[in-house]
Each structure stands twice: as structure tokens, then as C-alpha cells.
Design a protein around this nucleic acid. Structure first.
Length: 490
RNA sequence: CGGGGUGUAGCGUAGCCCGGUAUCGCGCCACAUUUGGGAUGUGGAGGUCGUAGGUUCGAAUCCUGCCACCCCGACCA
């Protein structure tokens, strides 16, 4: 393991990359733009999965699994959907290799597929093709299904966790009898995401709606949660789409209503991905490394023993065993780092880099005094506390840390939402301060595109809680009924 | 896919202009002293210099092709 990591202020991208690699979360694989998620990083992803999956079940959803390969013809059925994904698809064209006679393994041209298969970039098409066979009557609805899967999008540029060629995610695909029910579903799942981001990841988010320009390919309405990173750039952390009847029409999915009429089914889809790992890292971490909110930390408390002799070690072991049992009973996960191959200072630095919320250091001196040294990762504090009631102290402290991490991110985010009234001001804030900018916009795609070309800022969303207020677009001076949220984004 | 750049030990690098089989740091291994904030000393292991050709007595170094990766742009969860 290397010494430190690059400072955040020096070079944000470098800092981020260093951190992901040195905190042992992930690394690039020897495959273009693909990533290996290492055990420690995967453990965090598993925590996310567990919390989300529980929420999905509580809201009536079930998990299922659909194929990785999608026949090319399925894609062409929904016009805007193909258009959105066509330029980033991995395509399977053959099913066999052969020896060319001189020892080289080559693609067997005779084994060409009659119809190419697309490695799913998202599963709407294969799923709606399947739903056709599942739905006949209103009694078959709603279908509330989620899939945990990998998808492939052949992006031009990749970035660990934020945009890799292959990534892990969950995608919910629901079918409903009415438009109202589908919209409610899309909004409900957005709330699940927002709640998860804020209460589990400790990342504050803005709930909103995408403009037509930024909408998902094939959706009538795209809801999203937008988070702010420490470099002032926005990150889309989750989306929920109201798909209308587009996919039902494209895949001919109809049902007989109570009234006996044949109608198209209404759809939603929603997803979050391993990109959340990136959000987590960029929202909280510092120059010492990762800062994990206790609710996601695979290890919540690390204990580092300090000893010289075997006898001293034995006494510490006995104490730690009792403490660990007590903490485990409270659902607090504990790691006893009694490696004799590393010195304490090294361990301190290593666990800080990995973001463990609480560290206990304990040596013979403490054993005599009935104390331990308790260090908090979030505020880098260190204090000597009594062994008396330690487990309860820790349990309370974990709650305080979770709250503190959220508050800190929230304060940062709130102080980086800037209302502006002119294009001049818009550009100044964008260049000097960053963050979200709240301003009036005339509602046209042309204006949005022009601003993007000139400033690289995009409309992140129209916040759901936006106030209706008369104003004029800061770019064209045309009338506007409410503000929108602009930012440079990942 | 357009513009720029880089490939030398597990990682980061020097050497390249001006040809003579390779420098330094981290890491790794052994031993000793250490252990309450990333230890120190001594010794050691590890490289067909991205790859395929060419020029040359001789190529990390010069020439050509190819490959990979990084950065900027367009694209994007």
C-alpha cells in the first residue's frame, strides 16, 4: 500500500482515482473500460443492495432475472429507445472460434449468427417482450418486478464506478392498468431512492424531473435524484421513468380491462447502479481517504491492540473478545486487527484510508486504567474513554457519526445552490463557485443546448418542490414560470 | 470517433536528443533492533525496456507498422 493520496484541491480526478485504488475498492481490469470491484468495495455495494432490496420488497416488488442477450430486432421496435442506445452497444455476431491451422485461434466465420445479439445496455425491450406473454387481463396487473444485473454500455470514456463499460445495477420494470398508477409508481420509487441516498448513504439529493432533452430514451417523463460532489459538479444518483404506453405499444402488450376493453399497459422503469459508490466516495471522503457512513460501513469499528509481549496480547485478546460479543449483539460489526506483521501507526492510517467510522486503540496502559482510545473518522477526533459502558457509547456514537456526515454534506450542498438572475452572473458562479444554479429558463431545447455548448452546464432537473414564480429566462429574456437547476455534471 | 500524450521490476520513475543489455524511490524477502500515528539498519530477490519488423558490429535509445493506456472534445447511469 502506498503512503498518502493526492490532495483533493490539487487534482480532484487524481484524488478520486488514487482513493478508489488505495482504499482497495476497485481497479481497472485488463478489459477495455471494465472494472474489478475488489472485496472491500463489493462489501459496500452488498450493503447498498441489502438496504435497497429490503425497501423494494416492502413496496411490493419481487426479484426476477432476464437474459443478458437481446436480439437486435427487439431494439428497433421502440424508435427513440434504439436511437438512445445504438451508439454504445456491444454486439455478439458469432458463436464459435476455430484454429486457423497455424495455431491461432480465430473467429469461425461460418458460425455467424443469423440475428445479432446485443449485450443488454438496459432491459426494457427483452422484458416487455416477455411481459406480452404474462398479461391478458387487468387481474394480471400490476407486475412489480426488479432485476439485479450487470449491463454493458460502450461509452467513449470511462471512470471508475462513475462510468465503466460494464456496471452492476438494479432495474425495476413495472406494468400497470392505468396511467395514474404508473405515475404513482415512478414517483414512489424516486422517493425510495431519495430516502436511501439521504438516510443510508448520507448524501443529500434534489428530487426532480428531467427536461425533454435529458429524458431517458423511450420515456414520457424521467424523475431523478441529483447529488452534489465536493468539486462542485453534480451527479445523477438515480432515475425513475414513466414510460407511458410506449413499450406496451412497441411490444404489443395489451390487457382486457374491467369494462371488457382491450387496452395497452402502462409502464415504469427505475434504476440505481454502482455509480452510487462514486457518489458515496466523492460526497464524503477527504485527503486521508474514504469516509463511510456507519450504515454502509462493512466494518464499523476496528480494534487495534498495542502490545509488546505475548502476555500483554493475551490480556487484550480476552477483553476484545468480550467487547466484540457485546457489540455484535447490538448489530455493530467489529474487526480486530491483531496482525503482528504491521505496526499500530500503519494500521491507523490504513483503516482511515478505508473509512472505518470508529477506531479503538487499546494497550496495557489502557488495561490498567480501564480505558480505551476512541477515534472518530469523520471529524478525526481522538479521546480516551472508559471501558465502562463502552458498547453503548459506541452504538450511540455511530448514530451521531451517521448524522454528522449527512449534515456536513448537506451544509455543503445547501451553500452551493445559488439563485442567479443574469447570464453574466450564471457564468461567474459556474466558473468560480460551482455547484447548482437556480435560474429561469424559457423551456426550450434550443436554449438548453446553447447554454451547454457555451458553458458545459446542463439542466440537472426541474426540482419537484420548485416554487411557481413569474420570471424571465436569463438567456433569452422570454417569460418563465419557475426556476430550474443547472450544473456541470459527471 | 477527432486532437494531444505516454508505454522501462508489483507501483511511481531516470536514461532516449548524442546507440555500448539499465537509475532512483516505494513495495517485496531475510536477520536484528523496534511497536501509543504510516519504524530503522544491514543484506537480498525481481526487468527478453508494450509489440513486430528494419538500420547497425551492437538498439531502451534511431526508423516503420501494430497494440494498449491516459488526457481534452463529442457521448453518458
Amino acid at each position: 500500500m502506498g503512503k498518502g493520496i493526492t490532495s483533493r484541491s490539487e487534482d480532484y480526478s487524481q484524488w478520486y482515482n488514487d482513493l478508489v485504488i488505495k482504499a482497495d475498492l476497485a481497479e481497472y481490469a485488463a478489459v477495455r473500460g471494465c472494472m474489478v470491484i475488489k472485496p472491500y468495495g463489493y462489501a459496500i455495494w452488498e450493503r447498498m443492495q441489502a438496504v435497497l432490496d429490503k425497501r423494494f420488497k416492502e413496496t411490493g416488488h419481487s426479484n426476477a432475472y432476464f437474459p443478458l442477450f437481446i436480439p437486435k430486432s427487439y431494439f428497433s421496435k421502440e424508435a427513440s429507445h434504439v436511437e438512445g442506445f445504438a451508439t454504445e452497444c456491444a454486439v455478439v455476431t458469432h458463436y464459435r472460434l476455430k484454429n486457423d491451422g497455424s495455431g491461432n485461434i480465430v473467429v469461425d466465420e461460418e458460425a455467424k449468427l443469423e440475428e445479432e445479439l446485443i449485450v443488454r445496455p438496459t432491459s426494457e425491450t427483452i422484458i416487455w417482450n416477455t411481459y406480452r406473454g404474462w398479461i391478458e387481463s387487468y387481474r394480471d396487473l400490476p407486475i412489480l418486478v426488479n432485476q439485479w444485473a450487470n449491463v454493458v454500455r460502450w461509452e467513449m470514456r470511462t471512470r471508475l464506478f462513475l462510468r465503466t463499460t460494464e456496471f452492476l445495477w438494479q432495474e425495476g420494470h413495472t406494468a400497470h392498468a392505468t396511467e395514474k398508477e404508473a405515475i404513482e409508481e415512478a414517483e414512489r420509487m424516486l422517493d425510495v431512492y431519495a430516502d436511501f441516498a439521504e438516510n443510508t448513504l448520507a448524501v443529500p439529493v434534489v428530487r426532480g424531473r428531467k427536461t425533454e432533452n435529458e429524458r431517458f430514451a423511450g420515456a414520457l417523463d424521467t424523475y431523478c435524484i441529483e447529488a452534489l460532489m465536493q468539486d462542485g459538479k453534480a451527479l445523477q444518483a438515480g432515475t425513475s421513468h414513466f414510460l407511458g404506453q410506449n413499450f406496451a405499444k412497441a411490444f404489443d402488450v395489451k390487457f382486457t380491462s374491467k369494462e371488457g376493453k382491450l387496452e395497452n399497459v402502462w409502464a415504469t422503469s427505475w434504476g440505481v447502479s454502482t455509480r452510487l459508490m462514486g457518489a458515496l466516495i466523492m460526497a464524503h471522503s477527504d485527503d486521508q481517504g474514504l469516509v463511510l457512513p456507519p450504515k454502509l460501513a462493512p466494518i464499523q469499528v476496528v480494534i487495534v491492540p498495542i502490545f509488546k509481549t505475548e502476555q500483554e496480547k493475551d490480556a487484550l485478546d480476552a477483553y476484545v473478545r468480550t467487547l466484540t460479543q457485546e457489540l455484535n449483539g447490538m448489530d455493530v460489526s467489529v474487526k480486530y486487527d491483531d496482525r503482528d506483521t504491521q505496526r499500530p501507526g500503519y494500521k491507523f492510517a490504513e483503516w482511515e484510508l478505508k473509512g472505518v467510522p470508529l477506531r479503538i486503540a487499546i494497550g496495557s496502559r489502557d488495561m490498567q486504567n480501564g480505558t480505551v482510545e476512541l477515534a472518530r473518522r469523520d471529524i478525526q477526533s481522538k479521546e480516551t474513554v472508559s471501558q465502562e459502558g463502552l458498547a453503548v457509547t459506541i452504538e450511540n456514537l455511530l448514530g451521531i457519526i451517521q448524522e454528522n456526515i449527512y449534515q456536513k454534506a448537506r451544509d455543503f450542498r445547501d451553500s452551493h445552490i445559488t439563485p442567479v438572475e443574469s447570464y453574466q452572473e450564471f457564468k461567474e458562479v459556474l466558473d468560480n463557485k460551482g455547484g447548482f444554479i437556480l435560474c429561469h429558463w424559457d423551456g426550450t431545447v434550443e436554449t438548453e443546448k446553447r447554454v451547454k455548448e457555451e458553458t458545459k452546464a446542463t439542466i440537472r432537473c426541474i426540482p419537484l418542490d420548485v416554487e411557481q414564480e413569474e420570471g424571465v429566462c436569463i438567456f433569452t429574456g422570454k417569460p418563465s414560470k419557475h426556476r430550474v437547476l443547472f450544473a456541470k455534471a459527471y
